[in-house]
Design a protein around this nucleic acid. Structure first.
Lengths: 133, 133
DNA sequence: ATAGGGCTTCCAGTCACTGGAAGGTCAAGA
DNA sequence: TCTTGACCTTCCAGTGACTGGAAGCCCTAT
């Protein structure tokens, strides 16, 4: 299977697949013409990677997860540890963004947004307060 | 004022302040010895930048906001437009992360996480389903 | 005089791609 | 058979917003 078919099947762009080969996440065969030749297993692994990335796992985590995926004698506790760590990061990011959103929404709410120069948003940015930041 | 004092006062690391000068966000004077010499206005602008960044505005947005901040005849509508655009981005990011969290939390919840190899997390990543992704 | 800390510049690295250039390969149609 | 256009290849550079580190100048205190 050529790269564009593998891309189609996995949902990853060809560029990304080449990059993943570059960093040794996948190792497709090569045809006599030098073209990459993806097996079903390769495509399956790419799909696994696509989904892991879609859940926000770092490439490093993906590497670990893929190794665990291929190790039929893994301990599921290992997997859960990686996933829980990532889950905590996501929760933290959501908390950060929510605080940002609240502060910003407050500023936006206070600004009438017309042709006059008075602007609580700029005042808030220039003089503290307006939430905790 | 030397750079480390400006850093102290603004809350930005010296490296970041140099970077901001590099990309023309601030233009501190120079002393005879070549050292940067930050005026109160410079420090004030750096503080403005630190707060804008803390609210997640991109450097590009910060540049616009800083220009509006310095333009005493701006229309507050301009500012509000930038802020609302950014607010929408934050909301979108929160929505993405929340969907990720829910899908991942579901997988984590299903995994007993012990020494056995059976792992719903890996199965979920390998075979679709498990939320929508 | 020297030791230390702070200042300067410049280069490289981060993360995970992404765009683009230059060139080889393949299948279909004239 | 030739050509066209869509593939494929590699390699290099750029993204955003810093950050680390090296090499070297400057200032103050002892």
């Amino acid at each position: 299977m050529n790269i564009s078919d593998a891309a189609q099947a996995s949902g990853l762009p060809p560029k990304t697949i080449r990059y993943y080969e570059d960093i040794d996440l996948v190792k497709p065969d090569r045809g006599a013409n030098g073209y990459r030749d993806f097996s079903d297993v390769d495509v399956h692994n790419l799909t696994f990677l696509a989904r892991s990335r879609a859940l926000g796992f770092s490439i490093d985590d993906c590497r670990k997860l893929l190794a665990l995926y291929q190790d039929k004698s893994r301990a599921s506790g290992e997997v859960k540890k990686v996933a829980e760590g990532h889950l905590a990061e996501i929760e933290a990011k959501i908390a950060d963004l929510t605080a940002m959103r609240d502060a910003l929404a407050h500023l936006v709410h206070c600004c009438h947004g017309d042709d006059r120069p008075e602007c609580p948003i700029l005042e808030g940015l220039g003089t503290r307060r307006a939430g905790q930041m």
